[in-house]
Amino acid sequence: MSIIVENVSYTYMPGTTFAVSALDNVSLTIQDGEFVGIIGPTGSGKSTLVQHLNGLLRPTSGRVIVDGIDLSAKRVDLKKVRRHVGVIFQYPEHQLFEETVYKDIAFGPKNLGVSDDEIERRVYEAIAQVGLGKEILGRSPFELSGGQMRRVAIAGVLAMKPTTLVLDEPAAGLDPQGRDEILSHVRDLHQQGNLTVILVSHSMEDVARLVSRVIVMDKGRIFLEGTPREVFRKKDDLKRIGLDVPQVVQLVQKLKDKGIDIRTDVLTIDEAKSEILRILRRSTQ
């Protein structure tokens, strides 16, 4: 299932003196099974863009086509689209409301008219997918820790059986372990669950190690696009729009500036380590 965004512009409060252009002629295609990262400074249009992907916002001009369905068409079955594209917003735990974790996860599929047996199957599957035990299902969501609540909220979206998962800052506000847990489940969902994943993040380190393609937004436009290696090599361009590159990328670039013959397209601690070991061994030979 592909998502095609075609020359999309979006203006908040058009025709008034408060009109703000949030997206300016954005075009992109997301293929089935991709893991795409979207980064950009605050106000660059990331959240506005993702709200177009399941029809929460309609473009002021241009088209969004999800699995062949034109979301800007007059009579479009948005319910069907939303079943395919699950969006998890920032701090999704604020949207939990049921008495038990079970009921909260069951809420979505129930609204889709799924049978009770199938709902039960989905709830058990979804809770396992986010790495929580089924003993949690009878508890109130409000007794859980922040990280657990967030995973319950994600399970609620998974229970709708989406084919594409859009996550807006899923790790914001979590401690390092909570971050790693959430993100490793997202990676598993992509790899084992055959989901297309679109991750909006402020963490360059996370984007560098997880995604296969990065889209950099600035001022409502696509500023850069490519593999993490291609994008994070452009440190100066990213700095100019207020973004950073991972610390290890900064390190290898500084070493390069010192005249050391080192690859500058490393992305992770492991890659930096092997590259540094390579040059150290060569210099002792």
Partner: peptide, 11 residues
């Protein structure tokens, strides 16, 4: 205890 160190320290 569920924490981390800066990327450079880890490297």
């Amino acid at each position: 205890v569920g924490l981390n160190v800066p990327q450079i320290t880890e490297l």
